[in-house]
Design a binder for these strands. Structure first.
Lengths: 186, 186
DNA sequence: CTAGTTATTTATCATTTGTTAATTTTTATT
DNA sequence: AATAAAAATTAACAAATGATAAATAACTAG
């Protein structure tokens, strides 16, 4: 299970804690386009992507908007629900065929009480996610759509694997506008 | 010290842990406009605002951009530095006369090892901040500047206390554009 | 209170992005 | 390979926002 490689790179667990985690992890495969967690639900699972990719999405004025992408070896959660217990208007969907490890959130939170190192590990994991989110805000403040697109080209594998329509809304622009930007860049 | 009221509302500490925290807290007052942490520095302090308000800011193409506001009873940190140890191109500035409690970050992180409840408390505090940040991204994706401004009017005290030029960049628009929006709304 | 500074508004014009619709390209299915 | 369906591009025009400059209003220091 390469989940533990991921963990080890952040904060290695005792073998006791590893075993405790393994007992609450299950594996699952989703087909391309399949909804992993539906809009309106509560986030009760932390997903680790073994293979494939997924997105967090929601609808605004009838438009499908992608808020976040996750790839191989990424964690994906709907933070605004996981950390508040409230339902969220966002869902998670597999973009391509995707193989995930599911960590049950309630069980995980219970492990926090017993295994200090597990709480620490996940604190560090989500601090990283937090930092990524802060950087994303920067990209929206006073960067043009073109700059945001070029940043994306440089820093991620997104553009290779993901339909443009998802990328456009992720950048906060329409599909047509992204097409125009791509034409300029070429 | 109303820091503990803030803590208690999130996760009450043992009296032992409270005392440990108090030993690493100091109080300080900043004058209006005074820089609390300069651009380019590392974030080594967690600030709790007892009174007044502050902002996180940076420069982009010579423009002063406000990324974040914090008010009475808010925590303020430069997450991308605090959680990575790297310097950041952002600074913190008092907007009005501001009274803060400073928690030394290194000392705090050391307390995490000994006081499980302190680590938990700050995990929960920063999870909340993370959720706020996620919500802010939402506001940038496919909300018009006018919508973002109206949201701000409804949900915060920002507009009462803060110069428009700061609010404009916070919304991701120019001062002139914000003025125009305000004229429409009236 | 006054002069000087800073913040805000207004106006004009340029640029970017949105909207709609038609066209081409790509992908999926048989 | 042929067809249908979905995705991406292009074009034309509309709306939102940026940039610059000038005018007004609010604030600050003496």
């Amino acid at each position: 299970m390469d989940l533990h490689d991921f963990f080890d790179a952040i904060y290695p667990l005792t073998s006791n804690s590893r075993q405790a985690i393994e007992r609450i992890v299950t594996e699952k495969t989703y087909k391309k386009q399949e909804v992993i967690q539906p809009i309106g639900s509560r986030c009760k699972t932390v997903y680790f992507i073994k293979n494939g990719c997924a997105r967090i999405f929601y609808f605004k004025d009838g438009h499908d908007i992608t808020e976040h992408f996750a790839f191989k070896k990424d964690i994906i959660v709907r933070a605004e629900s996981l950390f508040t217990g409230k339902p969220t208007s966002k869902g998670i969907q597999a973009i391509n065929d995707t193989n995930v490890l599911k960590i049950d959130a309630l069980s995980l939170f219970r492990l926090y009480d017993v295994h200090h190192d597990i709480e620490r590990l996940f604190r560090l994991i989500f601090e990283k996610e937090y930092v990524n989110t802060v950087k994303r805000i920067e990209s929206f403040q006073f960067k043009s759509a073109k700059e945001r697109y070029l940043d994306l080209l440089n820093t991620t594998e997104i553009v290779q694997k993901i339909p443009l329509k998802y990328i456009a809304s992720y950048l906060g622009i329409t599909q047509v506008s992204l097409s125009r930007i791509r034409a300029e860049v070429r």
